[in-house]
Amino acid sequence: EVTIKANLIFANGSTQTAEFKGTFEKATSEAYAYADTLKKDNGEYTVDVADKGYTLNAKFAG
């Protein structure tokens, strides 16, 4: 089991951190699915991958 950390950075400057656990593939998929649920209210996002894929920095356009 691994933990994927998602740093969510919103256009207004606020941030949120979420963690997803499971296999690498499952946890990564859940992190992206969570970011997708936030698109409606926060706009499209881009992701910078860090820490060999164990940290995802998602920046929302607003």
Rank of each mutant, 00 (worst) to 15 (best):
T15I: 14
V47A: 05
G13E: 04
T55K: 04
F20G: 00
G62I: 06
L8S: 03
L56N: 03
I9M: 11
T23F: 07
E19C: 15
Q16I: 15
I4H: 01
T37I: 10
A27Y: 01
F10D: 01
L56Y: 02
E25P: 06
Q16C: 15
A18R: 15
F24A: 05
L56C: 06
I9N: 06
K5S: 07
Y54T: 07
G13H: 05
T3V: 12
D48I: 14
F20Y: 06
T15E: 07
T46V: 11
E25V: 09
T23E: 09
D51T: 02
S14A: 12
T17H: 11
S29K: 14
K52I: 06
D36G: 04
D48N: 10
D51P: 00
G53Y: 01
S29Y: 12
T28R: 08
N12M: 04
G62C: 10
Y54L: 14
A27G: 02
N12S: 08
L56W: 09
K5H: 10
F20M: 01
T37N: 12
E44D: 13
I4F: 01
G13T: 04
A27P: 02
E30F: 07
G43W: 03
K40E: 11
Y54H: 11
N7A: 05
E1M: 14
E44Q: 10
A58F: 15
A18W: 13
Y45G: 02
L38V: 05
A11P: 14
A31D: 02
A35D: 02
T46N: 06
E30H: 07
A31M: 08
S29L: 14
N12W: 05
A33G: 07
N57K: 04
G62K: 06
T46I: 11
E25K: 08
Y32A: 03
Y32Q: 03
N7G: 01
D51H: 04
N42E: 11
F20N: 00
A18P: 01
T3C: 12
L38H: 14
K39L: 07
E25S: 09
A31V: 09
A11W: 09
L56S: 03
K26C: 12
V2A: 06
L8M: 13
A50P: 03
F24D: 01
A61H: 14
T23H: 07
F20P: 00
F10A: 01
A35I: 15
A18N: 08
K21R: 14
A18E: 09
A6L: 15
A27S: 06
K21C: 11
L8D: 00
F10N: 02
K40G: 11
F20I: 01
K52V: 06
D48V: 14
T3D: 02
V2I: 10
N42A: 11
Y34K: 01
L8Q: 01
Y45K: 00
G22K: 00
Y32H: 06
K21V: 13
K39Q: 07
A27Q: 00
E25T: 09
K21Y: 13
Y34R: 03
N7K: 07
F24H: 05
E25M: 09
K21Q: 10
A27R: 00
A58Y: 15
T23V: 08
G53V: 02
F20S: 00
G22S: 04
D51V: 01
Y34W: 15
A35T: 07
G43A: 02
A27T: 02
Y32M: 10
K26H: 12
K26R: 12
Q16H: 13
K40W: 10
V47I: 14
G43H: 02
T17A: 08
T46P: 02
L38N: 05
L38F: 15
K40R: 12
T55E: 06
S29Q: 14
Y34H: 06
D41E: 14
A6M: 15
T37G: 12
K21M: 10
V2Y: 05
E25R: 07
A35N: 03
